[in-house]
Design a binder for these strands. Structure first.
Lengths: 202, 202
DNA sequence: CGGCCCTGTTACCGACCAGTAACATTTTCG
DNA sequence: CGAAAATGTTACTGGTCGGTAACAGGGCCG
């Protein structure tokens, strides 16, 4: 029943706590998840948690930071598998997001957290903001490399579609508008690709 | 400091409570808003609140229901101001959403609530779901009336862009990708309009 | 072995919060 | 007016949650 992170690998209690927290935050929300539940799911206890993190907020920040780092890793992998091919990287990126849309792990940690961290001054918000800004820069750079007509515009288009797909998945389920996300995003890329076909709608 | 709904109009306590709740839910989140705060902001008190709603959850449902009704009213107004002109209705709709993106009232109540109402069985979720389904049907109908090439596809595209713009506004602020939402959505409509110009990207 | 650092256990505190009870007050309307 | 209905006030309950204190193992390394 309870996710046992210890048996899977011999990770440190700190690691198990962070991963358990991320899982619970995704599944039940940040505010709805108590520190006792986190410690329990990590097969640890509250005291150990508070020896590694001075507060729940600090743990939240670490979770967001890790989520960002994972995305960074994914970007590097993208560059490795499709070296110097911006268009292929863009397409692979979109496809991967589409595949992970209905994962329990749907990486909407950032969006979800942004909604729940209402305090404008919450340290987590700056982590999210920094990550989103970096992501935007990355996509723009990718579009440029892919010889896209208007890199900034396609970039923003894709970012809107992606966030929209994640949000819609939450409210309307997998059968909602997000079902055609990949198709839509591919069409957008297609219509911006220089020297490609004439822009098409399907 | 505290929003005084009573002075503005002589609404019933029930009305004031619901509107105060919606405002606080939007600003601070559902879980972060206590019933005392709601009653206080409504210039009323907790007892009166509980005489009208058996629980906080019931109040949440009423808030979501009202948000849906307001949108319904907006759709009717759209039909009234642009009778039988689907394309104009679509464009006006997009423009209005763009204008309201940075309102404090950014009508992301639904999305925000969906993230925070983690219980799959929460009655509020079905209200959201029903509203989103109805909205999708409406947009599809509008696209058909506007003589759009692929009504379902444009409809889903716009819905993704809209939700994406709202979500992105939360995480990246007004200067983020959502800044060009109107431009992007208009281009999408343009490229799907039958007999219009060749699809363009700007 | 023996000390030390990390971890686990239990119990507790104070704050907050949803919801209720009993009573006082105002508003509404016949 | 006068009674009934709606609203306001205060105080309380029971539970949850973030965070802390004190103490008890337990593994690692000299």
């Amino acid at each position: 029943m309870t996710t046992d992170f210890r048996r899977k690998t011999h990770r440190s209690p700190r690691d198990r706590i962070v991963e358990a927290a991320r899982a619970l935050f995704r599944r039940n929300g940040i505010r709805a998840t108590g520190v006792d539940a986190i410690a329990g799911a990590a097969d640890s206890n509250k005291m150990t948690l508070y020896r590694h993190f001075n507060s729940k907020d600090e743990l939240i920040v670490e979770c967001l930071y890790r989520a960002g780092m994972e995305m960074d890793g994914f970007w590097q992998e993208l560059e490795r598998t499709h070296p110097d091919d911006g268009l292929a990287q863009l397409r692979t990126w979109v496809r991967r997001i589409a595949e992970h849309l209905d994962d329990d792990n749907c990486h909407c940690e950032m969006m979800s957290a942004a909604v729940q961290l209402t305090d404008e001054g919450h340290p987590g918000r700056s982590v999210i903001r920094a990550f989103k800004d970096a992501q935007r820069d990355r996509v723009v750079a990718l579009c440029r490399k892919a010889d896209i007509v208007d890199a900034e515009l396609l970039s923003d288009t894709l970012l809107l579609l992606i966030e929209g797909a994640r949000a819609t998945q939450q409210t309307s389920g997998a059968q909602g508008p997000s079902a055609r996300f990949a198709e839509i995003a591919d069409a957008a890329i297609q219509s911006f690709a220089r020297g490609g076909l004439a822009p098409k709608q399907v």
